[in-house]
Design a protein around this nucleic acid. Structure first.
Lengths: 221, 221
DNA sequence: GCGGCAACCTATCGGCCGATAGGCTGGGTG
DNA sequence: CACCCAGCCTATCGGCCGATAGGTTGCCGC
């Protein structure tokens, strides 16, 4: 019995990525579609086009695949968010820029990461280090909101509630994006505008906020 | 070997609910905390205080527990949302009322339903009937948004994007609620205000919208 | 007081899961 | 050329899963 059917090897055939990268890609795809626990290593292997035990030459365990994906995502998002939060700019501008950048990051990611941030995955004790980093990111966002309220830029809100709502929106926005979406204005700007507009004490300032956010220069650039 | 340790029988001991109800309660709790597939029937049984096979006297399969929870939730939410959407009121008032009612419904639910609407559960073919009803609910909400934009009440937005964002917020708001939250203004009103304010062409109208939404009388009441 | 049945129990099944053991192979290097 | 080892394979393991079979108990109606 040799090489039964070629799986979804379309992409894989055109661009011969390293096997390790294809495992991450297919695994993230399956985790997003049917959840981490419902995805078997045999399904991942079949999608990649190898046998199930061959997976373990690239990742010691199934969990290690998740860890690699978390590293890729949070390793980029957390430092970038902290950099944005520390800029000497109005809170509205910083929040807009964070939202925009995070959404672009998720849009352009080679992996569909929306399956990782469910409680069934990131809530497990084994992944506590990444849960902490995610919580830290949420606190940074909540801090921006709190500063905005204190400065009178934003209305009075529960900053923690807002940061949770933002997290919920980001995960869901991905669903829409991966499901194909009319181009028009970018998803990132549309979502960022909606959220910041809902918070601004003076919504008329939205255009200026968006403009300033677009011009922001981050330290690392 | 008889009745080893009593599980979290605190609630169960104080209020001797029917076993079937306690199964739904504990199962929903576990699904929310660690996902459907990661939750075993043995865990549910232990939480309820019975042996694992005894579960199957109340539900034929593990899936049947999920179906009962979906029925309870969507069976209430969908008709109510349609009723609100059909009222001869401005779109902003109807959207506010929908958000408020849905959040109150989730807040007061005896079950934590946030684990059911992950793709790993509702995305399975077996649960397609409930996925259709959920999509229908989203379309009703998107319809309200679209009417609001057409009437000039709301700014120009992608109504589908907004309905997805709302879905994301609702699931996340539950996380916060079940994690304990300062009372103050109700969660339902706070979230509804944020969302509607972000959409209103004239945010100053928010107070009036909230007032009218509170006074709305639904057909079934 | 006795049949019946709902609710629970113990014991156990087949099946799938993640992971391991160990063999084959082919390109790269001394 | 001999060697090595990365990368894949087949075969298989122990363990846990959802579900079934069948016995025991105790309450309720007659």
């Amino acid at each position: 019995m040799v090489a039964r059917r070629l799986p979804r090897a379309l992409v894989a055939a055109c661009v011969p990525l390293a096997t390790r990268e294809r495992i991450l890609f297919e695994a993230a795809h399956l985790f997003a579609a049917q959840g981490f626990h419902a995805t078997t290593t045999r399904q991942i292997a079949e999608a990649v086009g190898i046998r199930q035990p061959s997976l373990f030459h690239h990742f010691a365990t199934k969990d290690a695949i998740v860890e690699a994906l978390f590293d890729w995502d949070l390793g980029l998002a957390l430092p970038r968010t902290r950099a944005v939060a520390a800029l000497p700019e109005p809170a509205a501008v910083r929040l807009y820029r964070y939202l925009h950048d995070d959404l672009r990051h998720l849009e352009e990611a080679p992996y569909n990461l929306s399956g990782l941030y469910a409680d069934e995955v990131i809530g497990r004790p084994e992944f506590a280090p990444w849960a902490e980093r995610r919580d830290l990111l949420h606190r940074v966002v909540a801090g921006i909101v709190r500063e905005g309220t204190a400065a009178g830029e934003f209305i009075e809100v529960d900053a923690t509630l807002v940061s949770q709502a933002i997290a919920g929106i980001l995960v869901r926005a991905l669903t829409l994006h991966s499901g194909g979406r009319a181009p028009g204005r970018g998803l990132a700007d549309e979502v960022a505008r909606l959220v910041v507009r809902g918070l601004l004490a003076d919504p008329a300032a939205l255009e200026e906020v968006q403009g300033r956010a677009a011009l922001l220069r981050l330290p690392g650039e």
